[in-house]
């Protein structure tokens, strides 16, 4: 494992921890899109179908369990927890996320490395992860006061994707036959979706002003 990959995983883990901190301690999910969280839960459930069949490393299995457990518990919190549920911006979080599922699934059926159940589901999870942030970005645009934790959460998620690209570049030059167009292109699309957010995040940080996205 190279440094970019480890840093990417750690940033991903940190993003989840920041979100759990907000939800668990402050009992608030204001500014967080339930739609995006539901998509992430589907992403991990369809990607980690191999968790009990293919053992890669203890690290790998543990991280998979963490991402599965955290994504489903976040959805549970926002939907079911008495206090957290009250802070959910339901009227603002209106992205039709179900409309992302079918195109991603059809694309996975058409464009994949191998036409098997596990492989198609894995590819589906990559396509879906690429666009899963969209409801969250739309909600951010509509939020007048983006709190620090929400801003940091989205920043860490974007950083995780950027670091994965560096990891692929590194692996391409250090490992033989390491060419994987499907994860690379979907990962690149996913990272580009954060470009706009990054711009305003750094601007607000530089000018020491509150983060706000233009509508």
């Amino acid at each position: 494992m190279n440094i970019f990959r480890l840093a990417g995983d750690m940033t991903h883990l940190a993003s989840v921890l920041v979100l759990l901190l907000k939800i668990h301690t402050i009992k608030s999910c204001a500014g967080i899109s339930l739609k995006t969280q539901e998509l992430f839960a589907i992403v991990f459930a369809s990607r980690y179908l191999d968790i009990f069949t293919d053992f890669i490393s203890l690290y790998n299995t543990l991280m998979k369990l963490i991402f599965l457990g955290s994504s489903f518990s976040i959805v549970w919190y926002i939907r079911r927890h008495k206090l957290v549920r009250r802070s959910y911006d339901k009227d603002q979080d209106t992205f039709r996320h179900y409309f992302l599922l079918l195109p991603c699934f059809i694309l996975a059926l058409l464009i994949n490395e191998k036409f098997t159940f596990k492989e198609v589901m894995w590819t589906f999870s990559l396509y879906l992860e690429a666009v899963a942030i969209l409801p969250q970005l739309v909600l951010l645009q509509r939020t007048k006061n983006i709190d620090n934790l929400t801003g940091q959460y989205v920043f860490l998620l974007g950083a995780y994707r950027g670091l994965y690209i560096l990891n692929w570049i590194y692996r391409y030059f250090t490992e033989p036959h390491y060419v994987h167009w499907i994860p690379w292109i979907s990962g690149l699309v996913q990272t580009l979706l954060y470009a706009d957010f990054f711009y305003y995040y750094f601007e607000s940080w530089k000018n020491n002003k509150k983060l706000q996205l233009p509508a």
């Binding site: 990959r5 995983d9 991903h12 191999d50 293919d54 890669i56 490393s57 790998n60 991280m63 998979k64 991402f67 490395e113 191998k114 894995w122 994965y164 990891n167 490992e175 036959h177 390491y178 994987h180 994860p183």
Partner: peptide, 10 residues
């Protein structure tokens, strides 16, 4: 398995 090695990523 050649196409397995990207699956070590999360």
């Amino acid at each position: 398995d050649d196409d397995q090695h990207v699956k070590d990523e999360l």
